[in-house]
Amino acid sequence: MQVTLKIFRYNPEKDSAPHYETYTLEAEPTDRVLDLLEKVKSYHDGTLAFRRSCAHGVCGSDAMRINGVNRLACKVLVKDLGTTNITIEPLLGLKVVKDLIVDMEPFFENYRKVLPYFINDEPPPPDGRERLQTPEERERFDDTTKCILCGVCTTSCPTFWADGQYFGPAAIVNAHRFIFDSRDRGAQQRLEILAQDSGVFRCRTAFSCTEACPREIQITKAIAEVKRAILTGRLD
């Protein structure tokens, strides 16, 4: 089959403003959009810039807007798009550096603000073995351990677009992963951070993040659980 790609292009060394370029190429219905980008770069225009690594949805490099929706280019097949006209653009809300590459630093800065690491200064068990955790306690935060920090959720959030101060859903997801881990002792610190102006209460439950997440994390639910923990002071 033939597909038409309309790709957002911007090279700061050459272009005064962004523009779109169109490429027509042969594709298989089972091709990933990433395969098409590789084909364009290999045989049509080597200057096209995008990030990619694992090509199967676990590294989070190739988040971009595909027909208006934030996706990982390696997790969307041509046949799933329902059209042969494919528009590919960079994520919204972050500065475009070149073509489909955005500056991810503000995203990671928000992530780092929520203390996204295990906090527990108590000595581990004297036998040196693992801290115990029941399967139910482990299950409590399982969903949010899946996050690959691709940025798809945060850059599909209307509040994040409107307001650069909001931590965004990905940061909250990663705070949730620790807040509800029975072994962790940093919940209070994180909840105080997330109760600030730039924190969870900026979420307007638009569900855009949950719909977009390539790991199918129930992000809005996680945010609601963090909100509830702040309001009730309880972690159940």
Binding site: Y117, F118, N120, P124, G128, R129, E130, R131, L132, Q133, T134, P135, E137, R138, F141, D142, T145, R177, F178, D181, R183, D184
Partner: peptide
């Protein structure tokens, strides 16, 4: 064994046995 416990002490969320072990 020691290094797996070290990872667990860093917070790594291993799946668990019914008695709470890795």
């Amino acid at each position: 064994p020691a290094i797996v416990y070290e990872l667990e002490h860093m917070g790594l969320p291993f799946s668990r046995t019914p008695d709470g072990r890795i």
